Structures are given as structure tokens and as C-alpha cells.
Amino acid sequence: SKDAAQYVYDEAQKGVTQVTVNGVTFKFDNWQKLLKYAQKLLN
């Protein structure tokens, strides 16, 4: 959902490398990768 994507995006902006959405945890090597993933979700 857009809300989940926005949440992931906001978390990535904080510099975190993992985020949990609806009980599913996504882990990334660095926050830039998390940010890229979030941007994909938002598009």
C-alpha cells in the first residue's frame, strides 16, 4: 500500500537499514538501498 511505502520511505530517511511492515521485516546492507526500495514502492 502507499501508506506502507511512505512509512518505509520515512524510515529510510532516518538512516535505518531495516524496517518492519505488516509483520514483515526487510533488511538492507545500507539505508540507501532501503531508500531505493521505498522509492520503487512509491512509484
Results as ranks from 00 to 15, higher is better:
residue 29 D to T: 07
residue 29 D to K: 03
residue 37 Y to C: 05
residue 2 K to Q: 11
residue 30 N to I: 15
residue 21 V to M: 11
residue 29 D to P: 14
residue 15 G to L: 13
residue 8 V to D: 15
residue 38 A to G: 01
residue 19 V to A: 05
residue 41 L to V: 01
residue 10 D to F: 10
residue 10 D to K: 04
residue 3 D to S: 03
residue 15 G to H: 09
residue 36 K to D: 05
residue 22 N to D: 09
residue 30 N to M: 10
residue 41 L to S: 00
residue 19 V to G: 09
residue 18 Q to F: 13
residue 34 L to I: 02
residue 33 K to Q: 06
residue 37 Y to I: 10
residue 40 K to E: 07
residue 24 V to Y: 10
residue 41 L to W: 03
residue 2 K to P: 04
residue 10 D to R: 00
residue 24 V to N: 14
residue 7 Y to N: 14
residue 17 T to P: 05
residue 4 A to R: 04
residue 32 Q to F: 12
residue 14 K to Q: 11
residue 16 V to W: 10
residue 37 Y to T: 06
residue 39 Q to D: 04
residue 30 N to W: 15
residue 22 N to Y: 14
residue 24 V to P: 07
residue 39 Q to M: 11
residue 43 N to P: 01
residue 21 V to S: 06
residue 5 A to K: 04
residue 31 W to K: 00
residue 8 V to L: 12
residue 9 Y to S: 13
residue 24 V to D: 01
residue 43 N to Y: 04
residue 30 N to A: 07
residue 41 L to N: 00
residue 42 L to E: 00
residue 36 K to V: 09
residue 4 A to C: 15
residue 30 N to D: 11
residue 26 F to L: 10
residue 39 Q to L: 08
residue 25 T to E: 03
residue 9 Y to Q: 11
residue 32 Q to L: 13
residue 32 Q to C: 15
residue 14 K to Y: 04
residue 40 K to F: 04
residue 13 Q to L: 11
residue 1 S to F: 12
residue 29 D to Q: 06
residue 16 V to R: 06
residue 37 Y to L: 15
residue 9 Y to H: 09
residue 14 K to H: 09
residue 30 N to Q: 09
residue 13 Q to E: 10
residue 37 Y to P: 00
residue 16 V to D: 03
residue 2 K to R: 12
residue 26 F to G: 01
residue 3 D to L: 06
residue 28 F to A: 06
residue 5 A to V: 08
residue 3 D to I: 14
residue 8 V to Q: 12
residue 20 T to L: 14
residue 30 N to V: 07
residue 9 Y to V: 13
residue 6 Q to K: 05
residue 27 K to N: 13
residue 30 N to P: 03
residue 35 L to W: 02
residue 21 V to F: 08
residue 29 D to A: 07
residue 41 L to E: 00
residue 19 V to R: 07
residue 42 L to D: 00
residue 28 F to R: 02
residue 18 Q to W: 10
residue 11 E to H: 08
residue 40 K to R: 04
residue 17 T to S: 02
residue 27 K to W: 15
residue 14 K to E: 11
residue 1 S to Q: 07
residue 22 N to F: 15
residue 6 Q to W: 11
residue 12 A to N: 05
residue 19 V to C: 15
residue 1 S to G: 12
residue 12 A to I: 11
residue 33 K to L: 08
residue 29 D to H: 11
residue 33 K to N: 05
residue 14 K to T: 12
residue 34 L to Y: 01
residue 42 L to H: 01
residue 22 N to E: 11
